[in-house]
Write a protein that binds this DNA or RNA. Structure first.
Lengths: 222, 222
DNA sequence: GCGTGTGAACTGGTTCACAGCG
DNA sequence: CGCTGTGAACCAGTTCACACGC
């Protein structure tokens, strides 16, 4: 249908979808691109361009109907269907997600969780079914799990990702500080690495000091 | 010195720096751009271009000296100095970081942590100094804290970010699902939102199904 | 010959400017 | 008159191709 959405556009539309839900919760029914831009830190014309990838949705002269916009986003990007998700690695971070109740209502029900330590599996108390790591592929396939949060130590990340691939996973959010992608043609990976983000921030600030110029202004109107 | 590094280049160089440390730990002293590219999922010529922003560093015909490369990266991007870091919000996620011992050796010592619940502050046992949220600005300024991990609920994020700004923070890693940036000219923000990453993954997979074409190959050699 | 360094060509995402419509 | 929609212009980053040094 909509070939070739730039990834950056997908990222922004995903943000936008979330913002629509928020606006609806606040009973706001109508919003302009410039308002959206200010709220999300994105230039207004970029917002309009992005939305137009989905076809015409706005009402000329009076902005966007929040509900309609949300519906359009949900339908065309698949935000309306839930996607079964699993957690691989139940250290501190994985455990935190295990009890992060926001995932289910946002469309990502945690359907299974894995750890290589049987000991640890027996200790954790939760309603979510827990399995040993060697059953990853089997369970993912059986339960048709699409998404994975990969929260294992760096040493185990590649192997765990391969198991997920064997199970037919569709996407991985990788928290380990190593590159994993068993099969780039089939599996998408997003990396979330705190230390790396901190490094990026620190070099941005270092480079800025060395060359004092304001960061490009991004959240103004048109 | 090196004006105008694209942010994407900074991101890759930061990854590269981390990889250098790993290689050195494995006693690997010499590496080619194509090898680096394969390890990091980045095309080899992009690696070379990125590295060249720092000036000539490689040895023609025989790749890069890992130690020298690491040193160059550290010096020009400020990776060698430690940057004091704080945690704002001690829920599950914030607490996980509080005991994530990797931050200190990677150059981001946790110097303080904050929460608005005095009760919670009294419960947590740690060597890191804890403070009530209303002291954020004061402590950040006094301790010269540069970085913050913002792990508060969405409702409190904007306010917390403003306090950090008052304290003169340089960078914020924002885990809350709202846009925060009190002062784009002075403060850099990186957003890490699991639900958003999951949505991006799900729409990538949805759009791919609707239009079955392989994702662009990224981790091949030259 | 292998692997870096780099100017040149390219590509595609972002920005602009304005037409069109309520 | 405000705000969307959009083709055109722009520009930044990526990709290419090849010269040069080991």
């Amino acid at each position: 249908m909509f070939r070739k959405l730039p990834v950056s556009t997908i990222e922004r539309l995903s943000l936008l979808y979330h913002h629509c839900r928020r606006l609806r919760a606040e009973r706001i029914e109508r919003v302009s691109s410039s308002r959206l831009g200010a709220d999300l830190g994105i230039p207004a014309h970029t917002i309009r361009k992005d939305i137009n990838f989905l076809g015409e949705v706005g009402d000329t002269g009076s902005g966007y109907d929040v509900s309609r916009l949300q519906r359009h986003l949900a339908e065309s990007m698949g935000f309306d269907q839930p996607h079964k998700t699993c957690i691989v690695g139940l250290g501190r971070l994985g455990s935190a997600f295990l009890s992060y109740s926001q995932l289910e209502p946002d469309g990502f029900p945690i359907t299974a969780a894995f750890d290589s330590s049987i000991n640890r599996l027996e200790t954790i108390r939760t309603d979510i079914p827990l399995f040993p790591a060697h059953e990853i592929a089997e369970v993912v396939r059986r339960e048709q799990i699409e998404m994975a949060l990969l929260t294992v130590p760096a040493e185990s990340a590649v192997e765990a990702a391969e198991s997920l691939a064997h199970g037919g996973i569709k996407g991985i959010v990788n928290f380990a500080p190593v590159f994993v992608n068993p099969d780039p043609d089939t599996i998408a990976v997003r990396n979330m690495n705190v230390v790396n983000e901190l490094r990026i921030l620190s070099s941005l600030s270092t480079l800025k000091e060395a060359n004092p110029q304001p960061l490009p202004e991004k959240n103004k109107g048109d």
